[in-house]
Amino acid sequence: MLIHPLTFYTPTTLLEALNLYSSLGDVRLLAGGTFLLNNLKLLKKKGMKTPQNIVSLKKIGELREISANEKTLTIGSMTVINDLFNSPFLCDNFSLLKTVCRNISTQPIRNMATVGGNLTCRYTWTEMPAVMIGLEADLHFMGSDGQAQIISAEEFFKNAAKTDKILTRVTIKRDKKATIAYRRVKKSPFVDIPLLSIFMKTYFEGDRFTDTRVVVNNCVAFAQRDRVLEDFLNQSPCSNGIAQKALDHLDQGIYRLRSSDYKQHMFRVSIKSAIEQLIKSRNNPIP
């Protein structure tokens, strides 16, 4: 027995799941299982308590739907990574999600792990949280009292607050005007583990950057915005030398935290490269 005995529930509707989640004590939600099961095994190995009840969301069809219209992409929280990867809706500013999905872990994990699971366990071993913050995604939660709650991805990752609501979907606004650049570095060419990534989104007004968003993903640590760099870029013309100059205008605190010399060097390399990419794509809004 690799994990402690527990009671397993498989509701088939969201309402059923919500009721179970609120009424059962000592309960965890099961999405893909790739995080939860390893976590439970680890807790048992350490002699710690594990939940009495598991509520599986696997059989709730409405949580697996992906749809898109003129304005919004909607991703059901139980959407499996590979299903998102194969979705025909990933164009415009959503196409970066294809890259992110492709980079996640290994194939069987991509067949099991879910978008919602990835976000709610705040697993920054992948790049999903950083990209969601960058694309200004909204996370939609539902409580058993029927109360809906929308939290922005940025807010969600800033406060590690626990909630008794279930994540039902993620929405991202379609944006044809934004220019996006993304750089990621792996730990080594021989492994599939990301070391860091940099997300940049901007708009061009004449020859200037505006409304720039820079999200720094320090893998296995955190994902957050670098507002110092954002401010610098927003006040700068998009000329060629700006990428090098930008390296003197970083929120150093972010990059030094839990970062080896090599990682800090690669942050700089990636930031410079991302800014150069933005300038290059200036005439093509979506890379």
Binding site: S188, P189, F190, V191, D192, I193
Partner: peptide, 8 residues
């Protein structure tokens, strides 16, 4: 402890 895979 990473073991070599076919990647790379």
């Amino acid at each position: 402890y990473r073991l070599p895979r076919s990647m790379g």
